[in-house]
């Protein structure tokens, strides 16, 4: 039986809202704490933190480091704050999101505390005196188990791994104000940059034909656009397509891009990396076209076909137009 686990969860927020990953972490933290007789602390820092605690009822206590002076607190300050809280609350586990916002916090906190960090965690099982944690590496193609024998760790939690609803409890947790540590930061936050308006808003489309590296050349994008318009939708893309400059950033789906939940997400030549999955997992119907039968996208698509997407586009468009014409 494991010792009581006190768990600190680093809550993310951006522009006044808390993303799902924070609730996923709160939910699993609650479960582990309850089964071991420990407590959950939600650590929330930065401008507007105090207003957001009402949604953190899954935690016993919210540790609030509000700071109205800066739109975003520097990571250095958050890391020092977490380090103190770990000692004060005798926390054995700290959960941070494997996200852009919390990027690098876990591994730096680990260097400063000597508590090991494990990245890409998607499962946590209590065993004996500690835990067995499973990470998804190589873009989800390989799983890797690490044993935490003494039960102490900082875990980077992969988004989409735990049910967020378990962490959504509307109840005011006990609020504890935490003073801001005095850190001489060598970086200063300047401003938020919003995505350029003007392009199609892919988050509002019912149908997305999404292209990945398998689309091969920019010349094939117009073909995907024709298919998308036959379906009454638009073209979105994975990161490499946007990084190559074949489509604007406004079309990127995923961790750094948009989160979409269309009625149909038709993925052409996308492998289904965790960073991509994060942005489209809410889609009602996911159809994947990929020449690799082992591509991870088939693990979460509803329908799939192992064919060349370039060969499929034209006949599929014809079939769709035929059906629409017949109506």
């Amino acid at each position: 039986m494991s010792a009581p686990a006190n768990i600190i969860v680093l809550i993310e927020h951006l522009k006044g809202s808390i993303p799902e990953i924070s609730y996923e972490m709160l939910g699993i933290a609650r479960k582990i704490a309850d089964s071991s007789g420990g407590k959950v602390f939600a650590f929330i820092a930065g401008k507007g933190a105090r207003e957001l605690v009402a949604g953190l009822g899954a935690a016993d206590t919210a540790l609030v480091m509000d700071d109205p002076s800066a739109e975003r607190l520097n990571d250095d300050v958050i890391i020092e704050g977490l380090k103190r809280a770990m000692v004060e609350k005798e926390a054995s586990l700290v959960f941070v999101g494997c996200t852009n916002i919390s990027f690098g916090i876990g591994s730096r906190l680990s260097r400063r505390t000597g508590v090991p960090y494990v990245n890409w965690v998607k499962e946590i099982k209590p065993v004996d005196t500690g835990y067995l944690v499973t990470s998804a590496v190589y873009g989800g193609k390989i799983l890797s188990d690490v044993a935490l024998k003494d039960g102490r760790a900082i875990l980077g939690i992969l988004s989409g791994s735990f049910p967020p609803d378990a962490g959504k409890i509307q109840k005011q947790p006990v609020v504890e104000e935490v003073s801001k540590p005095d850190v001489k930061s060598k970086l200063a936050f300047k401003r938020l940059i919003e995505p350029k308006a003007g392009d199609i808003d892919i988050t509002r489309m019912d149908v997305l034909v999404s292209v990945g590296r398998g689309i091969q050349t920019p010349d094939n994008i117009p073909l995907a656009e024709e298919l998308a318009s036959a379906l009454g939708g638009a073209v979105s893309a994975s990161r490499p397509v946007v990084d190559q400059g074949w489509l604007p950033l406004t079309r990127q789906v995923g961790k750094s891009g948009m989160s979409v939940a269309p009625r149909l997400y038709l993925a052409l030549g996308i492998s289904g990396a965790p960073e991509h999955y994060e942005g489209m997992k809410g889609s009602k119907l996911i159809v994947a076209i990929n020449t690799d039968p082992k591509a991870p996208i088939f693990d979460f698509a509803h329908y799939g076909a192992v064919v060349d997407c370039l060969e499929l586009i034209e006949p599929l468009k014809e079939e769709i137009l035929k059906r629409k014409g017949a109506k």
Partner: peptide
């Protein structure tokens, strides 16, 4: 690392078999 392994193919996707035209027709 205790163990590295491939994820169990959850196989959630229902794979549509057949040639390109059959796949296109079934998808439509």
């Amino acid at each position: 690392i205790e163990r590295m392994y491939k994820p169990e193919v959850a196989g959630r996707a229902q794979i549509i078999e057949g040639d390109i035209n059959q796949v296109a027709a079934r998808l439509a």
